[in-house]
């Protein structure tokens, strides 16, 4: 076994970055090849979904006065990170089987493909958020974000929570399939309504606020809006709580994955599979 010198560790790290980038690029090319509109379609599909929600929200509840943030940007700051989080988590849950052909290259581990998928989703949704920022900038003729650094960090943080939750669910779901099913349902249904996408945390009455603020995505979304305008009211929102969630979900996910990686490669015994088929 090679000695773990700093040079060796750096070389391994660079190799890891190269492999994950390659997986992300392949995933993007595959999505472009499968879709009707090629590479444009990869961005159009989530954009159409978000635009539909935006239109519905504005149609049903009006555009508001936009006191703190332009309404389109305010909504985009909720929809884009939430859908990114949900997509990353759900893709991670089903990602190993979907990408099983990649493990023909033994250098690739399931974690590489999951990281590659998460990276490409973060790139797609990051690009969409950029589109909204550029659009609003052109509309208002000023750059609407006050703290760009915080926006980038919190956005990456939300992606990491999604990755951590997906990784944990993937391994637990391999042992107990019902867990994966419940979490997927939870991600799409419950979290959509408790992540401050359609409403601001400031309009939630004090007694109900704890029912929302357990959700780290609600913190992340409101932190993003606060980064756009520091005057934006977000009572109870805590950056510390959010970052503890980021570190904990990622740490737990990697720990569980590291101890169960072989489980993800396991295949059903063909004889048992055939026997099951006969029974069915």
């Amino acid at each position: 076994m090679p000695r773990r010198t700093p040079r060796f560790v750096l070389a391994q790290l660079l190799l890891q970055v190269r492999v994950v980038s390659a997986v992300a690029r392949r995933e993007l090319q595959l999505r472009a090849a499968k879709g009707l509109f090629g590479l444009v379609g990869v961005f159009l599909e989530p954009l159409a979904l978000i635009a539909t929600f935006l239109a519905l929200r504005i149609f049903l509840r009006g555009a508001g006065d936009g006191t703190y943030i332009n309404i389109a940007l305010w909504l985009a700051m909720g929809f884009v990170p939430f859908f990114m989080f949900a997509d990353i988590a759900i893709k991670a849950i089903g990602g190993v089987e979907k990408n099983s052909e990649l493990y023909f290259y033994r250098r690739l581990r399931p974690l590489d493909s999951l990281m590659g998928n998460a990276l490409v989703l973060a790139q797609i949704f990051g690009f969409l958020l950029l589109l909204f920022v550029v659009g609003v900038s052109a509309w208002e003729w000023r750059f609407p974000i006050v703290d760009l650094g915080s926006v980038i960090f919190v956005f990456v943080g939300i992606a990491l929570v999604g990755f951590g939750v997906g990784l944990t669910t993937l391994v637990l779901g391999k042992r107990l399939p019902v867990v994966a099913w419940v979490i997927q349902l939870f991600l799409r249904r419950i979290l959509l309504w408790t992540s401050c996408i359609f409403f601001s945390i400031s309009i939630v009455p004090d007694v109900f606020r704890p029912w929302i603020l357990w959700n780290p995505i609600a913190h992340g979304v409101e932190l993003l809006r606060m980064a756009v305008n520091p005057a934006y009211p977000a009572p109870g929102v805590s950056a510390t709580y959010f970052w503890v969630w980021v570190i904990a979900s990622l740490g737990v996910g990697l720990f569980i994955y590291g101890n169960n990686e072989e489980l993800l490669f396991s295949v059903e015994n063909p004889e048992a599979a055939l026997a099951d088929g006969d029974d069915g």
């Binding site: 390659a22 690029r25 090319q29 090849a33 499968k34 990649l102 023909f104 290259y105 250098r107």
Partner: peptide
């Protein structure tokens, strides 16, 4: 250890031969 020479299950029929070859090169 190489994969069995002459086979390659990692190739995707949707992607071009060049992209498939490039992916293998980026990994190995």
């Amino acid at each position: 250890v190489s994969w069995p020479m002459g086979t390659n299950d990692a190739f995707s029929g949707k992607l071009s031969g060049y992209v498939n070859a490039r992916f293998a090169a980026e990994v190995y």
